[in-house]
Design a protein around this nucleic acid. Structure first.
Lengths: 147, 147
DNA sequence: ACCCTACTGCGAGGAGTTCGCAACTGGGAA
DNA sequence: TTCCCAGTTGCGAACTCCTCGCAGTAGGGT
Protein backbone atom coordinates (compact mmCIF):
# COMPACT_ATOMS: atom_id res chain seq x y z
CA UNK A 1 0.00 0.00 0.00
CA UNK A 2 1.54 3.23 -1.16
CA UNK A 3 0.43 5.32 1.78
CA UNK A 4 2.14 3.03 4.24
CA UNK A 5 5.28 2.97 2.17
CA UNK A 6 5.48 6.72 2.24
CA UNK A 7 5.06 6.75 6.02
CA UNK A 8 7.84 4.20 6.31
CA UNK A 9 10.15 6.28 4.16
CA UNK A 10 9.49 9.32 6.32
CA UNK A 11 10.47 7.31 9.39
CA UNK A 12 13.61 6.02 7.69
CA UNK A 13 14.72 9.53 6.92
CA UNK A 14 13.91 10.68 10.43
CA UNK A 15 15.94 7.80 11.86
CA UNK A 16 18.87 8.88 9.76
CA UNK A 17 18.43 12.40 11.09
CA UNK A 18 18.37 11.13 14.67
CA UNK A 19 21.48 9.03 14.13
CA UNK A 20 23.35 12.17 13.09
CA UNK A 21 22.43 13.92 16.33
CA UNK A 22 19.41 15.68 14.91
CA UNK A 23 15.96 15.85 16.45
CA UNK A 24 12.66 14.69 15.10
CA UNK A 25 10.08 17.43 15.12
CA UNK A 26 6.67 17.96 13.61
CA UNK A 27 7.93 20.45 11.06
CA UNK A 28 10.65 18.14 9.81
CA UNK A 29 8.18 15.32 9.48
CA UNK A 30 5.94 17.66 7.51
CA UNK A 31 8.67 18.85 5.15
CA UNK A 32 9.78 15.33 4.33
CA UNK A 33 6.22 14.19 3.81
CA UNK A 34 5.56 17.08 1.44
CA UNK A 35 8.63 16.22 -0.61
CA UNK A 36 7.63 12.58 -0.77
CA UNK A 37 4.05 13.37 -1.72
CA UNK A 38 4.92 15.95 -4.35
CA UNK A 39 3.76 14.96 -7.83
CA UNK A 40 6.32 17.39 -9.22
CA UNK A 41 9.90 16.29 -8.92
CA UNK A 42 11.19 19.71 -8.13
CA UNK A 43 9.81 22.13 -5.58
CA UNK A 44 11.08 25.54 -4.63
CA UNK A 45 11.39 26.42 -0.96
CA UNK A 46 8.26 28.54 -1.39
CA UNK A 47 6.36 25.52 -2.78
CA UNK A 48 7.36 23.53 0.27
CA UNK A 49 6.32 26.35 2.60
CA UNK A 50 2.89 26.53 0.95
CA UNK A 51 2.39 22.79 1.07
CA UNK A 52 3.49 22.50 4.68
CA UNK A 53 1.23 25.37 5.69
CA UNK A 54 -1.80 23.63 4.23
CA UNK A 55 -1.66 21.33 7.24
CA UNK A 56 0.28 23.44 9.71
CA UNK A 57 -0.40 27.14 9.14
CA UNK A 58 1.91 28.17 11.95
CA UNK A 59 5.14 26.71 10.66
CA UNK A 60 7.52 29.47 9.86
CA UNK A 61 9.21 30.07 6.55
CA UNK A 62 12.68 30.11 8.03
CA UNK A 63 12.10 26.75 9.70
CA UNK A 64 11.38 25.23 6.31
CA UNK A 65 14.54 26.78 4.91
CA UNK A 66 16.55 25.40 7.82
CA UNK A 67 15.01 21.98 7.50
CA UNK A 68 15.74 21.85 3.79
CA UNK A 69 19.31 22.91 4.51
CA UNK A 70 19.68 20.17 7.11
CA UNK A 71 18.24 17.52 4.81
CA UNK A 72 20.55 18.64 2.03
CA UNK A 73 23.53 18.23 4.35
CA UNK A 74 22.28 14.76 5.23
CA UNK A 75 22.19 13.89 1.55
CA UNK A 76 18.49 13.11 1.69
CA UNK A 77 17.49 15.91 -0.64
CA UNK A 78 19.29 17.62 -3.49
CA UNK A 79 19.28 21.35 -3.93
CA UNK A 80 19.64 22.60 -7.49
CA UNK A 81 20.05 26.11 -8.76
CA UNK A 82 18.29 26.06 -12.09
CA UNK A 83 18.73 29.71 -12.91
CA UNK A 84 18.54 33.19 -11.47
CA UNK A 85 15.33 32.41 -9.56
CA UNK A 86 14.81 30.24 -6.52
CA UNK A 87 16.61 26.93 -5.99
CA UNK A 88 14.62 23.72 -6.32
CA UNK A 89 14.69 20.70 -4.08
CA UNK A 90 13.88 17.04 -4.56
CA UNK A 91 14.51 13.80 -2.76
CA UNK A 92 17.80 12.27 -3.78
CA UNK A 93 16.06 8.93 -4.23
CA UNK A 94 14.33 10.45 -7.26
CA UNK A 95 17.55 10.83 -9.23
CA UNK A 96 17.30 12.57 -12.57
CA UNK A 97 18.82 15.49 -14.41
CA UNK A 98 17.24 18.81 -15.22
CA UNK A 99 17.31 20.34 -18.67
CA UNK A 100 16.74 24.05 -18.25
CA UNK A 101 15.78 26.28 -21.16
CA UNK A 102 17.73 29.54 -21.10
CA UNK A 103 14.98 31.47 -22.79
CA UNK A 104 11.67 30.31 -21.32
CA UNK A 105 12.94 28.69 -18.15
CA UNK A 106 11.12 25.42 -18.82
CA UNK A 107 12.54 22.46 -16.95
CA UNK A 108 12.39 18.93 -18.32
CA UNK A 109 13.92 15.81 -16.90
CA UNK A 110 16.48 13.44 -18.32
CA UNK A 111 17.47 10.01 -17.12
CA UNK A 112 19.89 9.66 -14.23
CA UNK A 113 22.60 7.86 -16.22
CA UNK A 114 23.05 10.72 -18.66
CA UNK A 115 26.28 11.86 -17.08
CA UNK A 116 27.79 8.49 -16.15
CA UNK A 117 30.59 8.68 -18.70
CA UNK A 118 31.29 12.29 -17.81
CA UNK A 119 31.43 11.38 -14.12
CA UNK A 120 34.03 8.70 -14.82
CA UNK A 121 36.14 11.10 -16.83
CA UNK A 122 35.95 13.81 -14.16
CA UNK A 123 37.02 11.41 -11.44
CA UNK A 124 39.95 10.21 -13.53
CA UNK A 125 41.15 13.54 -14.96
CA UNK A 126 40.19 16.04 -12.28
CA UNK A 127 39.82 13.94 -9.12
CA UNK A 128 36.37 15.50 -8.98
CA UNK A 129 33.38 13.46 -7.85
CA UNK A 130 30.27 14.49 -9.70
CA UNK A 131 26.99 14.90 -7.82
CA UNK A 132 24.46 14.18 -10.54
CA UNK A 133 21.59 15.25 -8.32
CA UNK A 134 22.94 18.76 -7.98
CA UNK A 135 23.84 19.26 -11.62
CA UNK A 136 21.53 20.85 -14.17
CA UNK A 137 22.10 21.21 -17.89
CA UNK A 138 21.36 24.48 -19.65
CA UNK A 139 20.42 25.16 -23.24
CA UNK A 140 17.38 25.69 -25.44
CA UNK A 141 14.21 23.65 -25.65
CA UNK A 142 12.53 22.69 -28.92
CA UNK A 143 10.02 25.52 -28.79
CA UNK A 144 12.59 28.24 -28.15
CA UNK A 145 15.09 26.91 -30.66
CA UNK A 146 12.64 27.76 -33.45
CA UNK A 147 11.92 31.18 -31.96
CA UNK B 1 51.20 42.32 -29.81
CA UNK B 2 48.71 41.23 -27.23
CA UNK B 3 47.54 44.70 -26.26
CA UNK B 4 46.51 45.51 -29.84
CA UNK B 5 44.77 42.19 -30.21
CA UNK B 6 42.65 42.85 -27.16
CA UNK B 7 41.71 46.28 -28.48
CA UNK B 8 40.72 44.69 -31.77
CA UNK B 9 38.53 42.15 -30.01
CA UNK B 10 36.80 44.90 -28.08
CA UNK B 11 36.04 46.68 -31.35
CA UNK B 12 34.76 43.47 -32.94
CA UNK B 13 32.32 42.96 -30.10
CA UNK B 14 31.24 46.59 -30.23
CA UNK B 15 30.63 46.28 -33.99
CA UNK B 16 28.44 43.30 -33.33
CA UNK B 17 26.56 45.33 -30.76
CA UNK B 18 26.10 48.19 -33.22
CA UNK B 19 24.87 45.83 -35.92
CA UNK B 20 22.09 44.72 -33.57
CA UNK B 21 20.91 48.28 -33.04
CA UNK B 22 22.89 48.82 -29.87
CA UNK B 23 25.05 51.81 -29.08
CA UNK B 24 28.70 51.97 -28.25
CA UNK B 25 29.37 53.77 -25.03
CA UNK B 26 32.30 54.21 -22.71
CA UNK B 27 30.84 51.93 -20.08
CA UNK B 28 30.28 49.11 -22.54
CA UNK B 29 33.79 49.43 -23.84
CA UNK B 30 35.00 49.28 -20.25
CA UNK B 31 32.99 46.19 -19.34
CA UNK B 32 34.16 44.27 -22.39
CA UNK B 33 37.74 45.30 -21.79
CA UNK B 34 37.56 44.15 -18.20
CA UNK B 35 36.22 40.76 -19.22
CA UNK B 36 38.94 40.39 -21.84
CA UNK B 37 41.68 41.46 -19.47
CA UNK B 38 40.55 39.31 -16.56
CA UNK B 39 43.11 36.73 -15.56
CA UNK B 40 40.28 34.79 -13.95
CA UNK B 41 37.91 33.16 -16.36
CA UNK B 42 34.88 33.85 -14.29
CA UNK B 43 33.90 37.15 -12.75
CA UNK B 44 30.82 38.01 -10.75
CA UNK B 45 28.94 41.17 -11.61
CA UNK B 46 30.47 42.72 -8.48
CA UNK B 47 33.97 41.83 -9.72
CA UNK B 48 33.21 43.58 -12.99
CA UNK B 49 31.85 46.63 -11.18
CA UNK B 50 35.02 46.88 -9.08
CA UNK B 51 37.31 46.46 -12.07
CA UNK B 52 35.41 48.98 -14.17
CA UNK B 53 35.41 51.50 -11.33
CA UNK B 54 39.18 51.31 -11.05
CA UNK B 55 39.28 53.38 -14.23
CA UNK B 56 35.85 55.00 -14.19
CA UNK B 57 34.70 55.55 -10.61
CA UNK B 58 31.42 57.08 -11.73
CA UNK B 59 30.01 54.14 -13.66
CA UNK B 60 26.93 52.87 -11.93
CA UNK B 61 26.34 49.34 -10.73
CA UNK B 62 23.09 48.99 -12.61
CA UNK B 63 24.75 50.02 -15.86
CA UNK B 64 27.18 47.17 -15.49
CA UNK B 65 24.32 44.76 -14.82
CA UNK B 66 22.47 46.02 -17.88
CA UNK B 67 25.57 45.80 -20.04
CA UNK B 68 26.25 42.24 -18.94
CA UNK B 69 22.63 41.39 -19.66
CA UNK B 70 22.88 42.88 -23.13
CA UNK B 71 26.13 41.07 -23.91
CA UNK B 72 24.63 37.80 -22.71
CA UNK B 73 21.70 38.29 -25.08
CA UNK B 74 24.17 38.96 -27.88
CA UNK B 75 25.89 35.67 -27.11
CA UNK B 76 29.19 37.42 -26.45
CA UNK B 77 29.34 36.45 -22.79
CA UNK B 78 27.97 33.48 -20.90
CA UNK B 79 26.24 33.83 -17.58
CA UNK B 80 26.49 30.87 -15.24
CA UNK B 81 24.82 30.27 -11.95
CA UNK B 82 27.38 28.29 -10.01
CA UNK B 83 25.47 28.07 -6.76
CA UNK B 84 23.37 30.04 -4.33
CA UNK B 85 25.64 33.07 -4.62
CA UNK B 86 26.11 35.50 -7.47
CA UNK B 87 26.18 34.44 -11.12
CA UNK B 88 29.50 34.51 -12.92
CA UNK B 89 30.26 35.80 -16.39
CA UNK B 90 32.93 35.06 -18.94
CA UNK B 91 33.47 35.67 -22.63
CA UNK B 92 31.97 32.92 -24.72
CA UNK B 93 35.22 32.73 -26.70
CA UNK B 94 36.82 31.27 -23.58
CA UNK B 95 34.74 28.10 -23.65
CA UNK B 96 35.20 25.72 -20.77
CA UNK B 97 33.16 24.00 -18.10
CA UNK B 98 33.04 24.77 -14.43
CA UNK B 99 33.42 22.14 -11.76
CA UNK B 100 31.87 23.53 -8.60
CA UNK B 101 32.53 21.99 -5.20
CA UNK B 102 29.37 21.70 -3.14
CA UNK B 103 31.20 22.04 0.12
CA UNK B 104 33.86 24.71 -0.29
CA UNK B 105 32.55 26.42 -3.40
CA UNK B 106 35.84 26.13 -5.24
CA UNK B 107 35.54 26.38 -9.01
CA UNK B 108 37.90 24.60 -11.35
CA UNK B 109 37.75 24.39 -15.11
CA UNK B 110 37.40 21.45 -17.43
CA UNK B 111 37.92 21.29 -21.16
CA UNK B 112 35.15 22.48 -23.45
CA UNK B 113 34.59 19.11 -25.14
CA UNK B 114 33.66 17.39 -21.89
CA UNK B 115 29.96 17.35 -22.71
CA UNK B 116 30.12 16.70 -26.46
CA UNK B 117 28.69 13.21 -26.24
CA UNK B 118 26.03 14.32 -23.80
CA UNK B 119 25.08 17.20 -26.11
CA UNK B 120 24.60 14.79 -29.00
CA UNK B 121 22.46 12.51 -26.90
CA UNK B 122 20.29 15.38 -25.62
CA UNK B 123 19.70 16.69 -29.13
CA UNK B 124 18.71 13.22 -30.32
CA UNK B 125 16.59 12.08 -27.36
CA UNK B 126 15.17 15.33 -26.00
CA UNK B 127 15.41 17.76 -28.93
CA UNK B 128 17.32 19.88 -26.45
CA UNK B 129 20.31 21.94 -27.59
CA UNK B 130 22.91 22.14 -24.87
CA UNK B 131 24.65 25.43 -24.15
CA UNK B 132 27.95 24.25 -22.74
CA UNK B 133 28.95 27.78 -21.74
CA UNK B 134 25.98 28.08 -19.40
CA UNK B 135 26.30 24.67 -17.80
CA UNK B 136 28.24 23.94 -14.63
CA UNK B 137 28.91 20.61 -13.01
CA UNK B 138 28.51 20.12 -9.29
CA UNK B 139 30.16 17.71 -6.92
CA UNK B 140 33.09 17.50 -4.53
CA UNK B 141 36.69 18.48 -5.08
CA UNK B 142 39.65 16.35 -3.97
CA UNK B 143 40.19 18.30 -0.75
CA UNK B 144 36.57 18.09 0.40
CA UNK B 145 36.13 14.46 -0.58
CA UNK B 146 38.65 13.50 2.12
CA UNK B 147 36.96 15.76 4.64
C1' DA C 1 22.86 69.98 -37.11
C1' DC C 2 18.84 67.43 -35.86
C1' DC C 3 16.23 64.10 -33.77
C1' DC C 4 14.88 59.71 -32.24
C1' DT C 5 15.81 56.30 -29.26
C1' DA C 6 19.16 53.70 -26.68
C1' DC C 7 21.50 54.27 -22.75
C1' DT C 8 22.73 56.21 -18.14
C1' DG C 9 22.77 57.55 -13.03
C1' DC C 10 20.14 57.25 -9.26
C1' DG C 11 17.50 55.48 -5.80
C1' DA C 12 13.80 52.61 -4.53
C1' DG C 13 12.17 48.14 -4.45
C1' DG C 14 11.88 43.20 -4.58
C1' DA C 15 12.87 38.26 -4.43
C1' DG C 16 15.10 34.80 -2.09
C1' DT C 17 17.51 33.62 1.70
C1' DT C 18 20.12 34.05 6.11
C1' DC C 19 20.84 35.37 10.86
C1' DG C 20 20.52 36.64 15.84
C1' DC C 21 17.90 36.13 19.67
C1' DA C 22 15.00 34.46 23.22
C1' DA C 23 11.77 30.84 24.08
C1' DC C 24 10.80 26.07 23.59
C1' DT C 25 11.40 20.98 23.34
C1' DG C 26 13.27 16.20 22.07
C1' DG C 27 15.48 12.64 24.07
C1' DG C 28 19.70 10.82 26.52
C1' DA C 29 21.38 10.69 31.38
C1' DA C 30 20.47 10.21 36.17
C1' DT D 1 10.21 9.87 35.80
C1' DT D 2 12.43 13.95 36.06
C1' DC D 3 16.11 16.80 34.69
C1' DC D 4 18.82 19.16 31.66
C1' DC D 5 21.11 20.83 27.66
C1' DA D 6 21.90 21.14 23.01
C1' DG D 7 19.19 21.26 18.94
C1' DT D 8 15.24 23.58 17.09
C1' DT D 9 11.72 27.14 16.48
C1' DG D 10 9.13 31.67 15.69
C1' DC D 11 9.91 36.11 14.69
C1' DG D 12 11.62 39.93 12.55
C1' DA D 13 15.39 42.29 10.82
C1' DA D 14 18.87 42.28 7.66
C1' DC D 15 21.46 40.87 3.79
C1' DT D 16 22.74 39.83 -0.99
C1' DC D 17 22.00 40.06 -5.61
C1' DC D 18 19.55 41.97 -8.89
C1' DT D 19 15.68 44.70 -11.36
C1' DC D 20 12.90 48.67 -12.40
C1' DG D 21 11.00 53.35 -13.20
C1' DC D 22 12.21 57.75 -14.07
C1' DA D 23 14.12 61.79 -15.91
C1' DG D 24 18.16 63.35 -18.08
C1' DT D 25 22.01 62.38 -21.54
C1' DA D 26 24.25 61.16 -25.67
C1' DG D 27 25.09 57.84 -29.82
C1' DG D 28 24.68 57.81 -34.64
C1' DG D 29 21.60 57.52 -38.80
C1' DT D 30 19.62 61.11 -42.03
Amino acid sequence: MQYTRREDTVEEILDQLRREGGRVTASRRAVIDVLLASPSHHMTAADVVDAVRADHPDFHESTVYRTLERLTELGVVDRIQIGPGPAVFHLSTAQHHHLVCERCGAVTEASADLLDAVATRLRRDHAFVLDPGATSLHGWCVACRSR
